[in-house]
Amino acid sequence: MLASIHDDPPILVCADLQVEYLTPGRRHVILDGDAVTSRCLELLTLWRGNLWPVMHLKRIAQAAWFNPASRLTDWIAATKPRPGELTFEHPLPSAYSSSRFVDYMSNIRTVRCILIGFSLDETILATVAEGFHRSHRYQVVADAVACRQPGTGDAAAYKHAVVNVIGNFATIQPSAELLGTSGAVAV
């Protein structure tokens, strides 16, 4: 089914766009972070320019490597939420670990979300899988998501494998479909 993105825009969900993932020398730094951040900014600019709904997820874990008091959990400056944009902090990988997020998602008429950002193998995967079981529809933009480098093996192959798993619970699409001029998005 195709719906006009202008008439009924889905919510753009920006997952864990935090400084932590771009800081050199960190254990879970994202290697293609600059390219993914650029693609996320393009989509965020499109949504903001059209005054479409934007939501931000921020992982605040209690693990030793993710210190919430550190400046590393701050938003990437260009992606920082603006007034009127929703923000949800979540302690576990799934955004549904935030009771505020669950309440919000339970009270909107049609749940259609487009997910972009970091933590593909944690936040995005967990949120999409849990949302699927709640009958919430998600789309993941394959070239606007990234995950940390795996301990061993090829990072690109790891990302591809995670995206394939997510494809069982969500639609996978390239950003070109959203940035194109057609004004329609598959839902």
Results as ranks from 00 to 15, higher is better:
residue 1 M to A: 14
residue 2 L to F: 14
residue 8 D to P: 03
residue 11 I to N: 05
residue 15 A to K: 00
residue 17 L to W: 11
residue 19 V to A: 12
residue 21 Y to T: 06
residue 21 Y to W: 15
residue 27 R to D: 13
residue 27 R to C: 09
residue 28 H to Q: 13
residue 30 I to A: 09
residue 32 D to V: 07
residue 34 D to C: 11
residue 36 V to C: 05
residue 37 T to F: 05
residue 40 C to H: 02
residue 42 E to F: 04
residue 44 L to D: 04
residue 44 L to A: 10
residue 48 R to W: 06
residue 49 G to S: 05
residue 50 N to W: 08
residue 54 V to E: 04
residue 56 H to Q: 03
residue 58 K to W: 07
residue 59 R to W: 14
residue 60 I to A: 11
residue 63 A to D: 15
residue 63 A to Q: 14
residue 64 A to V: 12
residue 67 N to V: 05
residue 69 A to Y: 07
residue 72 L to N: 12
residue 76 I to C: 08
residue 77 A to F: 10
residue 79 T to E: 13
residue 80 K to L: 09
residue 81 P to Y: 01
residue 85 E to I: 07
residue 88 F to M: 02
residue 90 H to E: 03
residue 94 S to C: 00
residue 96 Y to L: 07
residue 97 S to G: 04
residue 99 S to Q: 11
residue 99 S to A: 11
residue 105 M to P: 02
residue 105 M to K: 06
residue 109 R to P: 08
residue 109 R to H: 13
residue 114 I to N: 01
residue 119 S to M: 13
residue 121 D to P: 08
residue 123 T to E: 01
residue 123 T to G: 05
residue 127 T to Q: 03
residue 129 A to W: 02
residue 129 A to I: 13
residue 131 G to K: 00
residue 133 H to R: 14
residue 134 R to K: 15
residue 135 S to V: 11
residue 138 Y to C: 11
residue 143 D to F: 03
residue 146 A to Q: 08
residue 147 C to T: 14
residue 147 C to D: 06
residue 151 G to I: 09
residue 154 D to I: 07
residue 154 D to A: 05
residue 154 D to T: 08
residue 157 A to T: 11
residue 158 Y to D: 06
residue 162 V to L: 07
residue 164 N to L: 11
residue 164 N to H: 12
residue 165 V to Y: 08
residue 165 V to G: 01
residue 170 A to K: 06
residue 170 A to T: 07
residue 173 Q to M: 15
residue 174 P to Q: 04
residue 176 A to M: 09
residue 176 A to D: 12
residue 182 S to L: 11
